[in-house]
């Protein structure tokens, strides 16, 4: 087998696993968009905030430590205890649920019925706000996140491909676990939406707000629920990306990467988010591999957007989106 083809296969595999990561972020978007029509730009910052909170709790940092020190001239940074990973995750989930309550209570409750674009801009404001709060609470340095996920090259795949092709593929264990976690998360979410009372309420609200309201579903409750779920998805995404490259500001930019994924998959489809993520992941990896060296590299900065743009010109509602019907 020619070398180029083998390399391309490795690149494709890595792209697929990267795509899973994109899909993970995109999933949070879809949840909120389906239930409330809000296009939540803050999803990426929520991932950053969740990961920062997780690290902060794990290491026993004092929230707002920098601020307190600056105002009162003290010098406190740590409580002096360390919280085990699972307990820290549980606490972070509570924080994200609290965040969902606050967002719903103080922001989006007052914006019900506004135009979608106003809601979108409000979430941009929310993103800035949350980023500032995250920095004030936990500082803005890069943090290492370790919740005990396996890291480094996967020896089994390395050995197996070496036997087959005479060249070992480099696949990170972390990417594999991310793919598995994402798969479980999607299965759980779909099961939750399909078989539980809350899930039925969510689907009803997604279908038609007023009809849902008229059969006695509390919109406010459902919205808090989806924001909490999105917060948990953000936490999972934050853990995965954070373990890979450290928890830092650039984590919030993955939200931007999730946008073309959503455009490909359609804003309202959970399977669409997954498949869109895979297409983008593989597409940009292969493009960078094949064309990148000719035109200066770093094409993954823009390839996803241009791909989505070209794609949308031919199919404006995305792959799995609902058909757009317009009336005057």
């Amino acid at each position: 087998m020619p070398d180029q083809l083998i390399f391309a296969m490795e690149v494709t595999l890595n792209g697929l696993l990267n795509g899973v990561m994109y899909a993970l972020v995109a999933l949070g978007f879809v949840l909120i968009f389906k239930a409330s029509g809000i296009f939540n730009y803050a999803q990426g910052v929520m991932a950053l905030f969740a990961a920062m909170t997780l690290v902060g709790i794990q290491q026993g940092r004092v929230p707002f430590g920098h601020l307190i020190n600056e105002i009162f001239g003290t010098n406190i940074h740590y409580f002096g205890w360390e919280v085990p990973a699972l307990a820290a995750i549980a606490l972070t989930v509570l924080v994200m649920i609290g965040f969902a309550l606050l967002v719903q209570r103080f922001v989006f409750k007052h914006l019900v019925g506004q135009e979608p674009i106003i809601l979108f801009m409000a979430t941009i404001g929310l993103a800035y706000f949350l980023e500032g709060v995250s920095d004030l609470m936990w500082g803005s340095e890069i943090r290492n996140l370790d919740v005990g996920l396996p890291q480094g090259i996967n020896d089994v795949i390395d050995a197996a491909t070496f036997d087959l092709f005479g060249y070992g593929f480099f696949i990170d264990n972390l990417d594999i676990s991310a793919a598995i976690v994402a798969g479980i998360l999607v299965a759980v979410l779909i099961a939750y939406a399909q078989y539980t009372k809350n899930g039925r309420a969510m689907r009803a609200v997604a279908d038609d707000h007023q009809a849902a309201l008229s059969v006695g579903i509390q919109l406010n409750y459902v919205w808090v629920l989806v924001w909490s779920l999105a917060g948990i998805v953000a936490l999972v995404a934050g853990i995965m990306w954070g373990s890979k490259s450290g928890v830092q500001f650039s984590l919030s930019l993955i939200a931007l990467k999730a946008l073309p994924v959503l455009m490909l998959g359609g804003f309202t489809s959970i399977p669409g988010a997954i498949i869109g993520g895979l297409i983008i992941g593989v597409g940009e990896a292969l493009f960078e591999f094949a064309i990148g060296p000719m035109i200066g590299g770093a094409t993954e900065n823009w390839f996803a957007y241009v791909l989505a743009l070209v794609f949308l010109v031919f199919r404006p509602q995305g792959l799995f989106g609902e058909k757009i019907i317009e009336r005057v």
Binding site: I118, A122, G125, L126
Partner: peptide
């Protein structure tokens, strides 16, 4: 007399908060 990094963080909070307040109170 705060340090600049902290002031920058506050700027984020204030800009983000103002945008939300504006959109709620006066779109």
């Amino acid at each position: 007399g705060w340090n600049t990094a902290l002031a920058t963080h506050f700027q984020f909070v204030i800009v983000g908060g103002l945008i939300m307040v504006f959109l709620i109170a006066e779109p």
